[in-house]
Write a protein that binds this DNA or RNA. Structure first.
Lengths: 208, 208
DNA sequence: ATCAAGTCTGAAACTTGTTCTAGATTAGCG
DNA sequence: CGCTAATCTAGAACAAGTTTCAGACTTGAT
């Protein structure tokens, strides 16, 4: 009888991991984040991750079927952490647009503290192919939740969801341009503020 | 004396290429696009590109210092072509927002005809690190020109340029979600139309 | 026509992600 | 406790991007 199967996929849901497996998974994610913090995407080398986390290479691949999977999982991990942090101090802006912009800028400042880590995670996210779609989607949903939280919405309209999607697009792409040195921090700020104005357009009572 | 140097960087500008070099460069780009059309990013294998274009591997790397450089150059090439095509039939919408959305959707339909090629180019673009920044920037500028063309603007305001930047962000990111199967064609259309509304906000006479 | 400098070629080597294998270890079950 | 299926480990092997090198070829200048 199967004792345990497929630890990688959506660890939280399907097969309950044993104590030691959970610990392994943590060690791996920790090593991944650590190496990423040093030198970004390229510095996360599978052999090194395996060694750092005291796990055989084959085992690493059993938990995370590719480098991109690993980094996306690392991002999920970090995102959760970030969501918790953001929740504690809700943004103080007057309008929904202001609050969202403030929240994103706060997240952006957090990323600036670990630019290499940000690089590794974002590059993995955009480089991911179809085989990673479920995990990437999870990240996207988590981001959506964070934004809706900032807007203070319970039941967003389809229009508002569209706006949120566009904000996420802008957020990701702006991050990339910043990480690759093609846009300044100030530029990213402007882009975020610009796109957040879209929210006003979808506010009840906005003409169009 | 140097007969020819660094053919790769911004071939159009710095060192004039000889006839044969220009021909080599064309052959390489052609092979790249061909292979990409077949199987996307992964199918563009440097050894195969070299063989298809009748050039030694070392030479390929002299012209394009990495696979990403090659694919970004391929994208520049395709973009130029696309700009030419789009120019011929200007969009017919009433408002700037409509015209931009129409133009982007037209480009999107073109990409749909060669989804693998689109995959290769877009993945390369977003995966590019700092060493490719100049080339990626060039692509970005070209895209900006196409959008401004569609808007029919001669002298955009800084606000309008911001809107254009956000539109580009959305365009890239929406393409990625489509290519990785996380968004439908219809979804991309909605996102484009949504972000294009930003243009209205920056129209002279828009309150804010 | 000849020469020097630079380019192109072909092939091997190196790097890092990924796969595979044989044997040791672990977990749940009777 | 002992069995059995599954997991974990160590290490080799493979794949594709990238680098390197010696020698053949081009080019522009003398």
């Amino acid at each position: 009888m199967p004792v345990e199967t497929k630890p990688e996929a959506t660890a939280r849901t399907s097969p309950p991991l044993t104590e030691r497996q959970e610990a392994r998974r943590r060690r791996i994610l920790h090593a991944s984040a650590q190496l990423a913090s040093r030198g970004g995407f390229d510095a996360v080398q599978m052999r090194e991750v395996a060694e750092s986390s005291q796990v055989a290479l084959g085992t690493l691949y059993r938990y995370f079927p590719s480098k991109v999977h690993l980094l996306v999982a690392t991002m999920q991990d970090q995102l959760e952490h970030m969501h918790g942090t953001l929740r504690k101090k809700p943004p103080g802006g007057e309008t929904a647009a202001e609050r969202v912009a403030e929240t994103l800028m706060r997240a952006f400042r957090a990323l600036q503290r670990e630019p290499h880590l940000a690089d590794a995670m974002v590059r993995a996210l955009t480089f991911a192919d179809r085989s990673v779609s479920p995990e990437v989607d999870q990240v996207s949903r988590q981001t959506t939740v964070i934004i809706l939280d900032a807007m203070g919405l319970e039941h967003p309209t389809p229009e508002q969801l569209s706006a949120v999607r566009v904000i996420e697009h802008t957020w990701h792409s702006a991050l990339i341009t910043w990480l690759s040195g093609r846009a300044s921090i100030a530029q990213v700020k402007i882009d975020i503020e610009t796109v957040c104005r879209l929210i006003d357009l979808t506010e009840p009572g906005a003409d169009r």
